[in-house]
Design a protein around this nucleic acid. Structure first.
Length: 471
DNA sequence: TGAAATGTTGGGGCG
DNA sequence: ACGCCCCAACATTTC
């Protein structure tokens, strides 16, 4: 009786899971396995927020599998080989990932297994289009989003996910499972040592059920205002699906299928799914862009080095309310509204002139949706050094952005409570408020709330001057 | 998925 | 009544 191992990674779901479907199609029994080998993703081993999410996602998947998710620790290849020896498995199935280090590892594993006459097959659970299947008329990878997206739409987005297979009767028996040594989830040490995750637990339902509920609620209630609503951080009319997509608790084909089933126009939202695709496309074809600017002129860009300012940015004490609100939302909940991400990133790279890689590293550690492809693209986009980046001279003014997108200041009030009593007129620029207004609101600049690290106008000019040095 | 500087227009106050 | 100036309001250009 041949057994197949289904090696789960960032495809932590049963539905629309090609590896699981293939295994079930040709083997009477399957053994789902998660192997904890973060060092194999170095230097991009999952950050603290990602690990927190992963813990709960694994717990939920274990429950869906009636306790039969085998967890092991150690090198992926060796662990698979040991498991094959222990179980007599005839084949291993998994779904592909697209980060440079992981591609290399997975290639080697596939080769080694096949050399040992073990079946090894992989599928696509994570993307609508895998990077090597999309190219422009010259046969080259796209570098600009819009023509890339147009082509995907012309080809047609895949929208037929694979249904949830009934796995229960096909899992290894409970007796057989007990005979295998499964590492207790808690032993992986994914949860924080000090409990900083209280607000995260309130914010997120890290489960398949949570993913489905979020998707459904978003499509029903928020999608119709998405085109404008997504710009208002206080309203939060966004999907919040990114962490589910990253862990694979939800697949992009499932999202597209759900959009097609409703009457609302979903183009603006699907376009964001398109950006996620594009990010993976770029990372695959230009693997160095996790660390180096795509635009080679930036090799000599005069980035500053200032730990104190970097730290102030990280903990939300820059003195610029909208930036601080975003950074505190990130720290507390593992997530930041997309518009505020752009503003906070623009402030770091332009106004503070600190390297985008430093920002990318911080986001990597603090975001529950931290994704190497999306994070690298996003930071290079903001810094103006990416493939299809915002022009360098596009500098966000956090005061104007606040007045446009957080008119009444409620987003700032929520995350920067020491400014909550300021009237809307001054909430985005307390440094300009008359002293009686500050006193009335019990704001003491430089004491209860910092003065701004830099003058917005002067630092904007400094960034433009730095740009003119390399162009 | 900007912002600031610069240019243009048109209404209204005023001599 | 007319021209002049001021300055919103909007458009265009530039970074």
């Amino acid at each position: 009786m041949s057994l197949a191992i289904v090696w789960l990674r960032r495809d932590l779901r049963l539905s629309d899971n090609p590896a699981l479907a293939k295994a079930l199609a040709s083997h009477p029994r399957v053994l789902p396995v998660y192997i904890h080998a973060p060092e194999e993703e170095a230097p991009w081993t999952p950050g603290a927020a990602s690990r927190w999410w992963l813990h709960h996602a694994l717990a939920d998947l274990t429950e869906q599998l009636d306790g039969r998710l085998l967890i092991r620790r150690g090198g992926a290849l060796e662990t698979l080989q040991v498991l094959i020896a222990e179980t007599g498995a005839a084949a291993v199935y998994w779904n592909r990932l697209y980060e440079p280090a992981v591609i290399e590892r997975d290639k080697a594993i596939k080769q080694a297994l096949r050399a040992a006459e073990i079946g090894a097959d992989s599928g696509n659970a994570g993307l609508l289009f895998e990077p090597w299947t999309v190219q422009n008329r010259q046969g080259k990878p796209f570098r600009i989003f819009t023509p890339y997206w147009k082509q995907l739409l012309a080809v047609g987005l895949p929208q037929r996910p694979i249904a949830v297979p009934s796995v229960d009767s096909r899992l290894v028996t409970k007796a057989a499972f007990r005979a295998l040594d499964s590492v207790p989830l808690d032993d992986l040490g994914l949860l924080p040592g000090i409990p900083w995750d209280a607000h995260m637990a309130e914010t997120w339902h890290v489960s398949r059920e949570g993913a489905e509920a979020r998707l459904e609620e978003f499509l029903e209630t928020e999608l119709k205002h998405y085109a404008h609503g997504r710009d208002l951080p206080a309203r939060d009319q966004v999907s919040r699906l990114s962490p589910y997509l990253h862990s694979g608790q939800l697949g992009p084909r499932e999202v597209v299928a759900a959009c097609r089933q409703i009457r609302q126009a979903s183009e603006p939202f699907l376009r964001e799914i398109g950006w996620r695709e594009f990010a993976h496309h770029l990372l695959y074809h230009f693997p160095h862009t996790t660390d180096a600017a795509m635009d080679t002129r930036f090799a000599t860009f005069p980035w500053r080095d200032d730990d104190a300012q970097l730290q102030a940015w990280q903990c939300g004490r820059t003195g610029v309310p909208l930036v601080d609100a975003g950074m505190r939302q990130l720290w507390a909940s593992g997530w930041m509204h997309n518009r505020v991400r752009m503003i906070a990133a623009s402030f770091l790279t332009k106004n503070l002139l600190l390297p985008w890689q430093a920002g990318a590293r911080w986001f990597w550690d603090t975001l529950v949706d931290a994704d190497l492809a999306s994070n690298s693209l996003g930071w290079q986009w903001t810094a103006g050094c990416g493939a299809d980046a915002a022009p360098y001279f596009r500098v966000f003014n956090p005061v104007l952005q606040g007045e446009k997108f957080d008119k009444d200041g409620s987003y700032v009030r929520r995350w920067v409570p020491e400014l909550a009593r300021l009237p809307a007129k001054w909430i985005h620029q307390p440094w300009a408020a008359p002293s009686d207004v500050l006193a009335e609101a019990e704001v003491r600049l430089g004491d209860s709330y910092p003065r701004p690290l830099v003058d917005l106008k002067a630092s904007r000019q400094r960034a433009l001057d730095a740009w003119s040095q390399i162009k």
